[in-house]
Write a protein that binds this DNA or RNA. Structure first.
Length: 654
RNA sequence: GCUGAUGUAGCUCAGGGGUAGAGCACUUCCUUGGUAAGGAAGAGGUCAUGGGUUCAAAUCCCAUCAUCAGCUCCA
């Protein structure tokens, strides 16, 4: 008998030939029906694998990452089996799971191609295979036998993979007529896969290296219930409707021009208005937190970037040097603001009493991105960072870090990002050479980030080896209204630049000390943030932010003067209005303006003129009754204020 | 940058070796209205750009540019 510890701490005794599936069955048949994989001593296993010694276990269902992974991994194998059945002689690369499904890279026989049209046929074959409820069987195999097997199949990709594996760790999985090299884990049989959607076909280089052959990558997603697939497809459709490039065009927020250049967004009046509101908002918050605005030029002498080390690291992959016609001076378009801010710090002697110093700038930077990387506003070549650099003593680091986290919380609250996590990126402890700075400083900085995050109650994941070469960082990931993850704000600790720029302050001991620097950009960039915001809100921005808050619709042209008067009165109270005085019926005006996503529609006609009032309609909510103009102005201002309540949190302490 | 697909009116798209199409938007006129599309007329395109094939090219071929998807990359 063996002892099996369940997640709640209880211990059950089983035979030594027990499997994960048997354990689930012993708890309840219903659980056994839903369970997909099992963690045995923190290692994820197949449910059908025999557990022969004392273990602590956790059963995984669809809702767990581990459960989904097994499900999709097995689905990738089913897809491979279907491909092999339809296109015999196909060679297989890798077929992993991804965030939302799985893919398989395949090398089709000479002359064969798979296009989007072929996917339906492939789906049907997969369903057929799934319904056969074939057992998925794990077997361990020696390296020599594995090589033999895939030599017989003439699959050079698998052979290459096996080559990198150690003898004794190689496993195969088989279902039906298909055998694959695979670490697992997998479902007990193919029957759990009930709904299948193959999403797209794309090219992908073997092992991501463009020198290698391009394989065909097929993306798919599967579900244990047909209903889940339907929901997923609706979500995909919704995501498509929210594409910021589409909405940006519809709402006339920004555009691109071939003549201006790739990846260089042009902000149109309404987009500029939106950006300005965001900037004003952040400036106010930052002022409360003791930041000072600075302004620096868009270019800097090459020497500046040689000092910072960026020239050496990125010089070749940047926009190239700008030369003066006469003196032959060399400048670079600034790819980041930090060196400029360091020079501001350096311009005067600093005392420990001055610290922390916090310089903020909406700094526009230019980075060369490969043409294929450019994407709407999320990936551009010229963008404006909501940048700031904090210079502090090592002892102040944690406190400053916490305050930056507070700012990010305020932003997320004002913009209704409820679901977010953070990633702590630390250095790889096994490979400390590629990082600069002393071990002592790294330890201190990493501890500061970890403690600050914990004290702020932040949900975090920690990634080793993901730190920048100059310091550890904290990145925020938000989940948008349709469940997609976006990386937004970032906070980074930097020991490199203070060193390279020889930044100093005089301590209480009258000695020179090196300050620590924090880079932080809560939005990341204005461009990217606006893009995320558009997709999160589907263009229905919160009232405080939206470029056009109120539209006034006249019933007929006779009331255009009154409409204009209402607009003027609201403008005095800083309410952003537009007037729709077109020669159209009211129904038409309502429809058009509802579609323009303006939060409030005011209808004015004879009755309103007589009582000096407006008839209020809220976007998407219909008629809200009548108010006087003053009442409406107060109502709007109150709503804006309540949305911006968090702005007033005053953290100034210096 | 690489692979593939796409490029027709401001927008969304149809068509396709022989005078360039629709809906919406736009302009003008009629209508002056009460909570999601009133009516009529009009204007608008070197069919991405450059070459080639052809009696004839928006259509076929080649190249270039851009867009989209994926790969790689992101201080």
């Amino acid at each position: 008998m063996i002892n099996v510890t369940l997640p709640d701490g209880s211990i059950k005794q089983y035979d030594e030939s027990i499997t994960g599936y048997d354990i689930a069955m012993s708890i309840s048949p219903r659980l056994a029906k839903e369970v997909l994989s099992i963690s045995v001593n923190d290692e994820v296993w197949d449910l059908s694998r025999v557990i022969s010694s004392d273990s602590s276990i956790k059963l995984h269902k669809w809702d767990d990452e581990e459960g989904k992974n097994a499900f999709w991994h097995s689905s990738a194998h089913i897809m491979a089996e279907a491909i092999e059945a339809i296109y015999p002689g196909t060679k297989f690369g890798i077929g992993p799971t991804i965030d939302n499904g799985f893919y398989y890279d395949v090398d089709l026989p000479e002359g064969k191609v798979i296009t989007e049209k072929d996917l339906v046929r492939l789906e049907q074959k997969m369903l057929e295979l799934a319904r056969q409820k074939n057992d998925i069987v794990r077997s361990e195999i020696s390296k020599a036998d594995a090589i033999q097997l895939f030599q017989d199949k003439n699959d050079e990709y698998k052979l290459e993979l096996i080559n990198d594996l150690e003898d004794g760790t190689i496993t195969l999985y088989n279902q039906g007529d298909f055998t694959d090299l695979c670490r697992g884990p997998h479902l007990p049989n193919t029957g759990a896969v009930k709904a299948i959607k193959l999403l797209s076909v794309a090219g992908a280089y073997w092992r991501g290296d463009e020198k290698n052959k391009m394989l065909t990558r097929i993306y798919g997603v599967t579900f244990p219930k047909a209903k889940l697939l339907q929901e997923y497809l609706v979500l995909l459709e919704e995501a498509k409707k929210r594409d910021h490039r589409k909405i940006g065009k519809e709402m006339v927020l920004f555009t691109f021009s071939q003549d201006v250049g790739l990846g260089l967004p042009l902000w149109m009046p309404k987009g500029a208005q939106l950006r300005e509101q965001l900037e004003l908002f952040l400036k106010k918050v930052q002022k409360n937190f003791g930041y000072e605005q600075v302004i620096t030029p868009h270019i800097g002498n090459v020497q500046l970037y040689k000092t910072s080390g960026h020239y050496e690291k990125y010089g070749k992959d940047s926009f190239q040097v700008i030369k003066t016609p006469q003196e032959g001076e060399e400048y670079l378009l600034k790819p980041m603001n930090c060196p400029h801010h360091c020079e501001i710090y350096k311009a005067r002697p600093r005392s420990y009493k001055d610290l922390p110093i916090r310089y903020a700038e909406f700094g526009t930077v230019y980075r060369y991105e490969q043409s294929g990387e450019l994407h709407g506003l999320t990936r551009v070549r010229g963008f404006t960072q909501d940048d700031a650099h904090l210079f502090c003593t090592p002892d102040q680091l944690k406190e400053e870090f916490k305050k930056v986290i507070d700012i990010i919380f305020i932003i997320f609250k004002a913009l209704d990002f409820k679901d977010f996590t953070a990633q702590i990126s630390l250095r790889d402890p096994k490979n400390t050479e590629k990082y600069i700075g002393s071990d002592e400083n790294w330890d201190k900085a990493e501890a500061a980030i970890i403690e600050a995050s914990a004290e702020k109650g932040l949900k975090t994941v920690t990634e080793l080896g993901e730190a920048a070469f100059y310091g550890p960082k904290l990145d925020f990931m938000i989940k948008d209204a349709v469940g997609r993850n976006w990386q937004l704000g970032t906070i980074q600790v930097d020991y490199n630049l203070p060193e390279r720029f020889d930044l100093e302050y005089t301590g209480a001991d009258n000695q020179k000390h090196r300050p620590v620097m924090i880079h932080r950009a809560p939005f990341g960039s204005m461009e990217r943030f606006v893009a995320v915001l558009i997709e999160h809100t589907a263009g229905k921005f919160p009232l405080w932010l939206t470029p056009e808050q109120v539209v006034i619709l006249s019933i007929s042209e006779k009331f255009n003067d009154y409409a204009q008067k209402v607009s003027n009165i609201l403008n005095i109270s800083d309410i952003r209005t537009v007037v729709d005085d077109r020669n159209e019926k009211i129904g038409r005006k309502i429809r058009d303006n509802e579609l323009k996503r303006i939060p409030y529609l005011l209808i004015v006609g004879e009755q309103e003129v007589e009582s000096n009032s407006v008839s209020v309609r809220q976007q998407g909510q219909g008629d809200k009754g009548t108010m006087t103009i003053d009442e409406f102005a107060r109502f709007i201002k109150k709503e804006v204020e309540s949305q911006l309540e968090a702005i007033h949190i005053n953290q100034k302490s210096n």
